[in-house]
Each structure stands twice: as C-alpha cells, then as structure tokens.
C-alpha cells in the first residue's frame, strides 16, 4: 500500500501534467511540505518558487487568521505568473503556479479535484 506521502505526490504528479500547471506542492505550516521533484516543474523563473517556499510561514499566518471566516482560495499575481493557494485546512494548502494568462477557470476545476483527492488521502472533511 502506498504511503500517504507517495499517494499525495502521485496526485500532484497528475496535476503537474496539465500544460499550465508550472509548479505545484502541498505546503504545510511548520513542517516540510509534499514537494514533487523539480524535474517535474515547468517554471523557468525559479526565484518565484524559492521566494514562495521561503515565505510560506508568513502565508500561513494570514491563512490561519482568515480560516474561521471560511478562507478557501488565495490568488496573487507576480508579473507573468499567478500563484494559487487552495486551502486544505488552516495549516495546509495546495499551492500551484500558473501563467497569469492561463485558462484559469478550467484549470481551477482540476486544482479543486486535486484538493479533494488530497483531502481524501488525509481523511480531511
């Protein structure tokens, strides 16, 4: 039986096959996240990803504060890229980087499916 980590990485691997998912991970507050190997990423601007990883704790400060109000997603644009947080729970989020001009609505459906799959693996409602 695949471990929880392996199962989550497999789900992320599937999401990363989408043309416009340039990078993706499951970030956890205070712990190492579930991060697929860099070779799976299509993101050319590595500094976006590095900065994102380094500031993840700050994001979770915000996420946890709004968690009670039902914070579900966070978007922010970084020039040609957009970073999307799909909150799994107050201390965990699916984080994806997509092109700013991506077909976002259609991609969002698949990001939502990924979040649902991860919740199922983790037993989160």
């Amino acid at each position: 039986m695949a471990s929880q980590k392996e199962a989550i990485l497999a789900v992320l691997d599937d999401l990363l096959r989408e043309e416009d998912i340039l990078a993706a991970m499951v970030a956890r507050r205070g712990f190492e996240g579930y991060i697929p190997p860099g070779s799976k990423f299509k993101l050319k601007n590595v500094s976006v990803w590095t900065t994102l990883q380094n500031t993840m704790g700050d994001f979770f400060n915000i996420i946890s504060k709004f968690s009670a109000q039902g914070l579900d997603k966070v978007y922010f644009e970084l020039g040609e890229h957009e970073v999307v947080f799909f909150v799994i729970h107050a201390d965990m989020a699916l984080v994806s980087v997509i092109p700013a001009l991506a077909n976002k609505g259609l991609l969002e459906v698949e990001m939502e499916n990924t979040r649902r799959d991860i919740k199922k693996i983790l037993g989160v409602k």
Binding site: K73, F86, N103, K104, G105, L106, E108, V109, M111, E112
Partner: peptide, 10 residues
C-alpha cells in the same frame, strides 16, 4: 460557464 465558474462548478 465552467470557464467562469471554475471550481464553483461544484
């Protein structure tokens, strides 16, 4: 519609 609704299509 699905393009605009995104994950809200659920």
């Amino acid at each position: 519609r699905i393009g605009n609704l995104g994950s809200k299509v659920y």
